[in-house]
Design a protein around this nucleic acid. Structure first.
Lengths: 198, 198
DNA sequence: TGTAAGTAAATAAACATTTACTTATTTTTG
DNA sequence: CAAAAATAAGTAAATGTTTATTTACTTACA
C-alpha cells in the first residue's frame, strides 16, 4: 500500500490557515486550496470528509489544540494569582506572535456559527478546554483572592483584553511603530489582575 | 418616476443581518437574500453596486453607525471616569441585547478581512469613530485618573470584556439560566474600572 | 501484485450579476 | 385637468462562472 505523504497533509493545513487569514474564511475554496497546496482536490477528500469536516478539524485539533498546549506551558493551577495570569498572558502572546494564521481562525471561531457550534460541542463533550485554568480560577475564587464570578465570566475578564491587544498588535505590524510590546502587554496584564483581585 | 419602496430597502438590510447572524457571513448569498426578502435579485443591485458594497454599507452605516449613536447616548467626555465607563457599558449592553444581529456582524468585523479593511479606512478617513470616548480617555489619562496608554490600548481594556460578556449572554440565552445580568455586568464593569484606575 | 494514495478532468448545483421586460409613479402637454 | 409620455423601480428568467464533490484512471510502495 502506498503510504500517506505527510508533507501534503501538512500543506493542506498550513495553506488553508494562510488563505483564511489573508483572504477570509468566505474565500477559502477547496479548489483554491488544492491549487495553492499543489495537490489534486481529491487528495483533500482522502483526509477529510468534506469542507465542514476540514474546517472543524482545523479549528479544534490544529488550532485550539496547539493553543491550549502553548498557553498552559509551565502553568500550574496552584500558582499565585498574579504569577499565573502573567504566565498565561506571556504564553499566549508568544504563541500568537508566531502563529498569526491560527489567531485569525480563532477570531472566526467567535463569529462563524459553524466553528462556534463545533467549539461549544467540544467544550461540552470532554469537560472543558483549558481545565487547569478553570481550576486555577476556582481555587483563587474560593481562597478569596479574586471576586466570585461564574468561570465563563472570569475567562472573559481574563482573556478578552489579551485577544483584543493581539488584534492591535497585528494591525500595528503594518505601521511604522508597534504600540504593543511585551512591556505594555505586562502593564495591561497588571491592570487586569488588579481589577479581578479583591 | 416610480418611487422607491422603503420597506424593500429595509427588508434587504434586516434580512441580510438575520442571515449573517443565523447562518454566517459565508452563507449569505444574493439569491438567498432576495428570496427571503421577497424581492428580485435585481432589486438589491438597484440599491447596492455589488455584494461587497452591500456588506460594507451594512457594516459601516447600518450597524456601526447605530451602535455609535446608542453607546454615546447621554455620554459626555468630561464625565467622571467610573460614571462614564458605566454609562458606556450600560448603553452597549442595552443596544446589543436588542440588536443581536448587529452584534453578530460587529463580531465578523474583527475577523473578515473585507469588513476589517472597511472599518480601518473609515477610521482613518473621518478621524475616529467614537471621538468622544477617545477625548474621555485622553482627558482622564492627562488628569492622572487612569494609566497612560495609547488610546487603542485603552479601548481594548475598556470594551473587550463587554463584547466577550455579550457573546456569553447570547450563548446563555439558549440555556436554562442566564449568568449575565445587569447586576453581574456592573460588577465586571467595576473590575475594569478598578484595573484601569491609577 | 494488491491496495490505498494520488491525479486530471468531469459533473451538477449554486453563485453573482445581467438581460429583457413590466409596473407605478411624476411630469408634461393637448 | 385628464390622459399619455417619460422614467426609474421592480420582476422573472437567463448568463457565464465558480463551487463542492465525484469519476475514472495512475502511481508507489508493503
Amino acid at each position: 500500500m502506498r503510504p500517506k505523504n505527510l508533507e501534503k497533509e501538512e500543506a493542506i493545513r498550513t495553506i488553508a490557515l494562510q488563505i483564511i487569514a489573508e483572504e477570509g474564511l468566505e474565500n477559502l475554496t477547496m479548489q483554491k486550496l488544492a491549487k495553492a497546496a499543489n495537490i489534486s482536490p481529491r487528495t483533500i477528500y482522502i483526509k477529510y470528509d468534506n469542507k465542514e469536516d476540514l474546517l472543524v478539524k482545523l479549528f479544534i485539533e490544529e488550532v485550539l489544540g496547539n493553543y491550549e498546549q502553548a498557553i498552559l506551558h509551565d502553568f500550574r493551577f496552584d500558582m499565585g494569582f498574579a504569577e499565573g495570569v502573567k504566565k498565561l498572558w506571556l504564553n499566549g502572546f508568544a504563541y500568537f506572535k508566531n502563529n498569526r494564521h491560527a489567531f485569525a481562525l480563532i477570531q472566526y471561531g467567535k463569529s462563524s456559527p459553524l466553528l462556534n457550534k463545533a467549539y461549544q460541542q467540544k467544550n461540552i463533550k470532554q469537560g472543558d478546554f483549558f481545565g487547569p485554568i478553570i481550576r486555577f480560577l476556582e481555587h483563587h475564587a474560593s481562597a478569596g483572592t479574586i471576586h466570585n464570578f461564574h468561570h465563563d465570566i472570569q475567562r472573559a475578564l481574563l482573556f478578552s483584553p489579551l485577544t483584543d491587544l493581539m488584534s492591535e498588535y497585528f494591525d500595528y505590524q503594518e505601521r511604522p511603530e508597534q504600540i504593543i510590546t511585551e512591556e505594555t502587554l505586562l502593564r495591561c496584564c497588571d491592570a487586569v489582575i488588579k481589577g479581578m483581585t479583591k
